[in-house]
Design a protein around this nucleic acid. Structure first.
Length: 780
DNA sequence: CGGGTCGTTCACCGC
DNA sequence: TAGCGGTGAACGACCCGG
């Protein structure tokens, strides 16, 4: 019989002496289904050394292979970086023996290296069958008495599968989970702090299981019953990776089995520390929060706010214990846990489309989408592309790292300009890589012959024209799909489900395409080739230089430019320029922005301007930096606004003086003086005793846990020693100890002068007491 | 030994 | 656990004159 399924999750099992892949899905009739496929074979490839005949190699190596589970060896034709190669396919009795056999055989003096021995069986299965997670497929199945029996899930043995085109995902049962953990002192420890409550929300029903005063056994059981009863397809939490291990430890103590998988299995750790729950999608939104470096503390409320949710004041974690021990306010804590589960649910609703699309496109299971880095996402896609071409997937190996030159940045002349347009190349690197067929498998090594090649402008790297590479194919597919999606988007109503799905898809496609250039230059990549990244950058610089030259020929004034953009004074020649670029350079451009007025300092990558709609945009300046005190950023923004809107220097100067006075009078909140910096290594590992390092050391001495990646907030206090030693964690400082002069001299003055310098204001002018009866500035 | 110069370390941002 | 280009603060080694 045939079934139509949406692939939720897959895992590998060893069943009656054979490897099997378990496919967990939802049928088009809404049934939860398990398909078992034990027809999958484990294998890898060996490339013979130069001069070694593959058939000879098989005969010589087979006896040794047999001892390590090799069942069969055969010679076959594959591609290695675009070149046809006869390689040996090695089949192994079970997947556990793959790496072992590959390691042994590689050592024989017959082979250069092994390919695809580091692919997991489930990955191989998806490739072989051309399936992707989070997509529909059709399976030819039959009942079989030896299959595991699982409540509420129909199990079948699979005979054949084929992918389907259908887009719309089925209705998923989603359960958001929040654990309320409270530590007596410091952070809660599962060894002695029981769970206080678990809240769940499924979009309709809110449940909460509470500590009964003696044991958390019953609340855990209550929660587990609810999981079994509701049988979620998706379990989503914030920090749920940690919650699972906390739960596991608690379960051990109170003698409960943490059976949350569809097969009753406990949660288990898979790649990159990601936790899987068999048969379900386990999503930790914390991983998504971690992608946003703007966040300081990575609390749920901060994360939710960054996504546009308005969340009221939440009880901070260090006060949990205080709340819990006071019956008058304890209820607030429980209420908050409930609200958290609702919030987690709502966040998932807005992220799920994007996650599903990314999963479909890359072929990564949906719960890996958030944990995988952008490099791994691109790589997952490349693996599929390579597989379909018959190209062997290179192993991850350590390679030496050689830096190369990147984008071109023009030096701006400081000053204010009016009517400036920004002409951007659309997806410059992807389009350049496409245009010149830049790919690791089209690269022609030095000394090798090549009749018809693209030659990079500076290093003269060559790329063959007669063959489309993995990168080229990937980009062609991504950009073509994106174009098609965007065309379709135009015909779809904006509020519809279809619009949401398509928009998520086109965004995912764009992100993947843009990642590929960086991927090429990443030493950790399977398809790393410095020459690829280097050439793309060279052609990028060449392109922007050509555009500038043409603009100048047309009599246009170039104000600035960075990598893929040029800033020009708007005029009737702009259209001519972009037409020329499209025609001669064969690249698309867009007028991305128009500034009514824009200010440049003498520095690159730092400017601010008034857009046509009146919005003030700031790039690179202190205003947008996370490591300046709020008060300095606010002041700079206001100075910039005054100057761009009114060009009134006196007004700006007196504004700054007013703020300086307020600081000295102690009228500014300490909160606005906190400087945040991220720890990039453990405090002891620093060579320099920088302010944030000393502040971090002081915090850890007081018992705070400071991890790499945490942001430390400090203020500068009064004293005569160097700044670093006067930097104190803001939590430990009273506002009377703050060194106001530091904030005036090292924060307000430099931030304000950055702008005012352009108008000839210097430090002395700014600091001088305004004289009575005279204008504040500009009368001398 | 205090004050200045200057190279280095560090974090962050732009694209 | 994607790349390079770029700015600017603070440290700390060093020099200098006293």
């Amino acid at each position: 019989m045939k079934v139509k399924l949406w692939l939720l999750d897959l895992n590998q099992e060893f069943l009656s002496g054979k490897d099997a892949v378990f496919l967990w899905g939802i049928s088009n009739a809404g049934k939860r289904v398990l398909l078992v496929d034990d027809s999958v074979e484990s294998f890898f490839f060996l490339k013979p050394l130069n001069g070694v005949d593959p058939d000879e190699a098989v005969r010589a190596a087979f006896p040794e292979g047999k001892r390590h589970g090799v069942t069969r060896m055969e010679v076959c034709d594959k591609l290695v970086l675009g070149k046809p190669v006869r390689v040996v396919k090695v089949c192994v009795d079970r997947s556990d023996n793959v790496e072992k056999a590959a390691g042994r055989l590689e050592k024989l003096k017959l082979f250069e290296k092994a390919y695809e021995s580091d692919l997991r069986l489930s990955t191989r299965y998806l490739l072989e069958k051309n399936l992707t997670p989070s997509s529909w497929f059709e399976a030819e199945v039959e009942k079989n008495p030896f299959l595991p029996s699982i409540p509420n899930v129909e199990a079948f043995k699979v005979n054949a599968v084929r992918p389907l085109e259908e887009e719309k995902p089925p209705e998923l049962r989603v359960m958001a989970v929040h654990l309320l953990k409270v530590g007596g002192k410091g952070s809660p420890k599962p060894e002695y702090d029981p769970i206080v409550a678990i809240s769940t929300y499924d979009g309709k029903e809110l449940k909460q299981y509470r500590f009964d005063g003696k044991t958390d056994r019953f609340l855990i059981e209550g929660f587990l019953d609810q999981v079994k009863k509701f049988d979620p397809d998706v379990i989503v939490g914030y920090g749920i990776t940690e919650d699972w291990s906390y739960l596991a430890e608690r379960c051990k103590r109170v003698d409960v089995q943490l059976e949350v998988g569809r097969n009753y299995a406990k949660p288990h750790t898979s790649v990159f520390g990601h936790v899987s729950v068999t048969g379900r999608i386990n999503i930790d939104l914390f991983h998504n929060a971690r992608e946003n470096p703007q966040l300081t503390e990575y609390t749920l409320d901060e994360y939710a706010e960054s996504l546009g949710f308005s969340v009221g004041q939440m009880i901070p974690e260090h006060k949990y214990s205080e709340y819990l021990s006071n019956p008058l306010i304890a209820e607030k804590l429980f209420k908050q846990s409930e609200e958290c589960s609702k919030l987690i649910y709502r966040i998932w609703t807005i992220l799920s489309d994007f996650a599903i699309q990314l999963s479909q496109i890359t072929g990564l299971p949906i719960d890996h989408v958030f944990t995988a880095s952008s490099g791994h996402r691109a790589e997952a896609y490349l693996i599929r592309e390579a597989y379909s071409m018959g190209e062997l997937i290179p192993p991850r190996v350590e390679k030496p790292y050689i830096p190369y030159a990147g984008g071109l940045v023009l030096q701006p002349q400081k000053g204010v300009y009016e009517n400036v347009s920004v002409l951007d190349f659309s997806s410059m690197y992807p389009n350049i890589m496409l245009k010149y067929n830049i790919s690791p498998d089209t690269y022609v090594q030095e000394g090798k012959e090549c009749e018809d090649c693209f030659v990079s402008p500076e290093s003269k790297h060559r790329f063959r024209k007669d063959y489309r590479g993995v990168y080229t194919r990937m980009l062609q597919n991504l950009l073509a799909s994106r174009k098609a999606v965007r065309e379709e988007l135009k015909l779809v109503e904006e509020d519809s489900v279809k619009y949401r799905i398509l928009d998520a898809r086109q965004k995912a496609l764009k992100i993947l395409a843009n990642t590929l250039y960086g991927y090429a230059g990443w030493v950790g990549a399977r398809w790393y080739l410095r020459e690829v990244a280097e050439s793309a950058a060279e052609w990028g610089r060449y392109t922007i230089r050509m555009a500038i030259k043409k603009a100048e020929q047309l009599g246009m004034k170039i104000i600035y430019g960075d990598t893929d953009s040029i800033f020009v004074i708007d005029g009737e020649k702009l259209n001519e320029l972009s037409r020329w670029i499209e025609h001669e350079l064969e690249l698309e451009t867009r007028v991305e922005k128009k500034y009514r007025r824009i200010l440049f300092t003498e520095a690159k990558k730092r400017y601010g301007g008034l857009l046509e709609n009146g919005r003030l945009e700031v790039v690179g300046l202190e205003v947008v930096r996370g490591d300046w005190a709020e008060i300095a950023k606010d002041t700079q923004l206001e100075v910039l606004r005054i100057m761009l809107e009114t060009m009134d220097v006196n007004k700006a100067v007196s504004y700054v003086r007013r703020i300086m006075a307020e600081i000295r009078e102690g009228k500014v909140d300490m909160e606005k003086m906190v400087i945040w910096k991220r720890m990039t290594k453990p405090p002891e590992a620093y060579e320099v005793r920088a302010p944030h390092v000393l502040a971090a050391l002081e915090l850890s001495k007081k018992g705070w846990r400071i991890d790499v990646g945490d942001k430390v907030g400090y203020v500068i206090t009064r004293g005569t020693s160097r700044i670093g030693e006067r930097a104190k964690p803001y939590q430990l400082v009273e506002s009377k100890d703050i060194d106001y002069e530091y904030y005036v001299k090292n924060q307000i003055v430099p931030a304000a002068l950055r702008i005012l310098e352009v108008f000839g204001v210097d430090e002395q002018t700014l600091l001088r007491e305004p004289r009575k009866g005279l204008m504040a500035f500009g009368t001398e």
